[in-house]
Amino acid sequence: MAIDIINRLILALADAAPLALVTLAIVLIFRTSFTTNFAQGMIATTGAYIVTILYNRYLLVNFPEGNVFILTIFAFLSGIIVAFLFGVFIDVILIRKSKFSNALTKQMITMGIVLFVMGLLPTLFYKAELNMPTIPYFFTKTSVIQTAMGNIVVQHNHIYSIVVAAVVISIVFVMLKFTKWGLGVRSTAANEKVAGMMGVNTKFITAMSWGIAGGLGTLGAILYASYNQTIGVPLMIEMQVNGFLAAILGGFSTFFGPIIGAIIIPVLNQISFFLMPNFQIGGQNLGVYYKVIVYLIILIIILIKPIGLFGKKIAKKV
């Protein structure tokens, strides 16, 4: 029993790793741009497409003798950089140049981007081979640790994504706390106008946040895609929905709350996956609806605590 819980906890954390990255990206944009970025998932999917296409079509063909490790890392980095540029492009070209700029128009622009990318990717990469490259010797192995109580099964790619996500999230938090960019983000989040008056270059801060959010999302997509190897346009849709719900669950007003929300949701998912097959309604097993149950639990929590578990109530002046 105890071993079973440990195994499920590892699976939950493995799901939480990419989710936490996506959630952090969403919150970063929400705090600096004051909008919900629905294109987050599609930017990340674009990055993942770039990685696979670059690796399968160009790197494998042109450098058949090359070191697989270096080639894979190169492909990952190029995908992240493309997504970074895409994020900056959305902020600098699309949002800043639009005639009226408020939360609703920004939301609509991101929705338009979702639709555009949804059409663009399958057209541009028609019938392409979409296997996410993995680092051999690291990613595809499974180890079994034998203990007195039973076997702990560990897939290596799960451990690596947990480590990578933890390191990257820590770096972002350190940047938020100690760098000039982090100070800018925090002051912009508190009050954009006053931050601008105090000499903070809010435009630069916002553009950088969009770029970093794009990069974080792509890293999440790469980690997530390494679990089941193939990617497609709907790759990040569910992840993005969970990211938004995690952000609401933790509270949009802090940076660490959403991360905790992003850990809670996969844990709840695993508990629900474990418990629900024991229940039946009208002769139908509830096991297939385990995600639905989790969504309902989250909605109930939001109903009770609308500002989120760790949210602070912010008084608005008129």
Partner: peptide, 23 residues
């Protein structure tokens, strides 16, 4: 006919253009 999803690109681009330049 070949690219079944390509029409989505068209509607997405129209949304962005209309929101940006011609609300």
């Amino acid at each position: 006919q070949t690219y079944k999803n390509a029409h989505l690109m068209f509607s997405g681009a129209l949304i962005i253009l209309v929101v940006m330049f011609y609300p």
